[in-house]
């Protein structure tokens, strides 16, 4: 009997592998800006409504030199930080209580579910009536906007801590307080930090909205004023600032995650 013909095995497992190219996003940004700049210089984009990136950069530089930039950023940051801290502390606390205690869960879950969908900016007029047009009404709006997603994420994070770890801790005689601080809190940290990503974005949206409704300073107020005066280069500069602020917050959270969750 003759040998059967040998058929080489061909590779057919290419593709569908998740991965990233570090240079790709930089190249994409550079291309977008280059196209935008070229389109402006060629007169394809009317500079009155869509100024070139170079004009936006000039506007940003001018704002930085005359000190207005820092005033507006400072005002917005103050509101974001105060509102976010207040909302986060309250949200994490209630989320933990709901995750740990049956009664708190039974009461809290339907109440939070009912109030969560309300667009919080709609409550700003009410807060202005309660707290006045000054800072407290804006901080309260941001705090409330941050509070609800934080409650939900903290509650889910606590709820997702593996039960076997809690049982293990009970089997070694750890008290409830110790279980909360040594098992549940670190176990819930990934979920809580993921929730912070959502809540910081909400805080950024709400600060702009609140500043557009009633403020003299802040990036939101600046963008609105620039729009009213048809200073589109300044308007886009404000939007770029917001984008940079969002990226900075996101980077800070990434660093925090790397430090706190280095065990993952």
């Amino acid at each position: 009997m003759s040998d059967p013909a040998k058929t080489p095995v061909s590779f057919r497992g290419a593709g569908f592998v998740p991965g990233t190219r570090r240079w790709a996003p930089w190249l994409a940004f550079a291309l977008i800006i280059a196209c935008w700049e070229s389109a402006s210089r060629l007169g394809w984009l009317p500079s009155l409504f869509m100024p070139a990136p170079s004009e936006v950069m000039n506007a940003l530089h001018a704002l930085l030199v005359d000190g207005k930039l820092l005033v507006h950023i400072g005002a917005s940051l103050k509101r974001i930080v105060s509102g976010w801290i207040l909302g986060s502390i309250a949200g994490v606390t209630l989320g933990f209580l709901m995750g740990i205690f049956v009664l708190a869960r039974s009461v809290g879950l339907p109440v939070v579910s009912a109030l969560f969908p309300i667009p919080k900016i709609a409550l700003l007029p009410l807060f202005i009536l309660w707290f006045g047009i000054g800072e407290p009404s804006k901080v309260a709006t941001i705090a409330l906007g941050v509070f609800f997603p934080t409650v939900v994420s903290a509650f889910s994070a606590v709820d997702n801590v593996p039960r076997n770890l809690i049982r293990m801790a009970q089997s070694f005689g750890l008290s409830t307080r110790m279980i909360v601080f040594k098992v549940i809190l670190p176990g819930a940290m990934p979920g809580i930090l993921a929730g912070f990503r959502i809540s910081t974005s909400i805080a950024l949206i709400l600060v702009v909205a609140a500043e557009m409704i009633g403020a003299d300073t802040g990036i939101g107020a600046f963008v609105l004023a620039a729009g009213n005066l048809m200073q589109i280069d300044q308007l886009i500069a404000g939007v770029v600032l917001l984008s940079l602020l969002g990226l900075t917050v996101s980077a800070l959270l990434s660093v925090t995650e790397k430090i706190v969750l280095r065990w993952r």
Partner: peptide, 30 residues
């Protein structure tokens, strides 16, 4: 003896954020 009835679990039940020594320490710290 610190814990008369002590479990060894099927799924190990180790705290992923603690080192080996830290996991053993959990049973002693309190």
């Amino acid at each position: 003896c610190l814990n008369p009835l002590t479990f060894v679990f099927q799924d190990f039940a180790l705290l992923p954020w603690r080192s080996v020594a830290g996991n053993v320490a959990l049973a002693l710290e309190h």
